[in-house]
Structures are given as C-alpha cells and as structure tokens.
Amino acid sequence: MFKLTLMPQSLEVLLPANSPLTELEFELHGQESIPFGCRSGACGACIIEVVSGAEALGARAPSERDFLASLGFDGGQFRLACQCRLMGDAVVTAIATP
C-alpha cells in the first residue's frame, strides 16, 4: 500500500500499488478531492500539482505533456491525475480549472 496525500486539506489515502488515481472517488466516498471529468486525459478537469513523489506517479506521456502545455501548465510538476498510477508515496494538490 502507498500513501497519497491531498493538499491543502492534508487528506491521506492508502491505495494498492499501481492503482489509478481515479480510485480516489471510491476511496473517499464523495469527500472533496480531485475532480475527474472524462478520465481519458482530454478535458483537463483533474490537473494536479505534484508537491513530492513525482516518480511515484509513473511517466508522463508526450500527449499528456503537450495537452497540459496547451492549457498553460507546462511545468514538470503538473500532471493529469487520470493518467497517473500510484507506485510510491506522493503528495499532490488539485488545481482549480475554470
């Protein structure tokens, strides 16, 4: 089990190795966390900023990098949560998008 910490609320969730972050919806039973939209990396609803543990979220595909850049989130610390799988402990912050 690995720990994902959601900031700023310091909400900690334990997930099995290789779990998609979309599992948060089920684990948190409706508590406020990361908003998921399309779940396929096309809408940008689930943008997160990785505070620590970037390597624990898997590699960022070129298509994810390019899509984030098109939305103005071109730094390496930004990810689409729907494209991440937890492979270690990580701390992330959900980014509110319009």
Rank of each mutant, 00 (worst) to 15 (best):
P16T: 09
S33E: 03
E32Y: 07
A54E: 14
G58Y: 01
G37M: 04
Q31K: 14
C43M: 05
E27I: 00
V50P: 01
A59V: 06
G30P: 11
E49L: 03
A56T: 06
V51K: 11
P16V: 02
C43H: 04
G58Q: 00
A54N: 11
A54Q: 13
S40V: 11
C43P: 08
I34V: 15
A54H: 06
V51E: 14
A45P: 00
I48T: 00
L15F: 10
E27A: 15
A54P: 00
A42N: 13
A17C: 01
A45D: 08
V51G: 00
I34Y: 11
I47D: 07
A45N: 09
A17E: 15
S19D: 10
L21R: 00
P35A: 12
G53V: 09
N18T: 03
G53M: 09
A54Y: 01
E49C: 05
A61M: 11
F26E: 13
T22G: 00
P16H: 05
L24F: 05
A54K: 12
G41Y: 08
I34L: 08
G37D: 10
A42I: 11
S19W: 09
I47A: 10
L21C: 01
G30M: 12
C46G: 03
A61Y: 02
L57W: 07
Q31I: 01
E27T: 11
T22N: 01
S52E: 15
E49S: 13
V50N: 08
N18C: 06
F36R: 01
A59F: 00
R60N: 01
A17F: 09
E23Y: 07
P35V: 12
L57R: 03
E55I: 02
R39F: 08
S33V: 03
A61I: 00
S33F: 00
V51A: 09
S33T: 06
C38G: 04
P35Q: 13
I34W: 10
A42Q: 14
P35R: 13
N18M: 12
Q31N: 04
F26D: 13
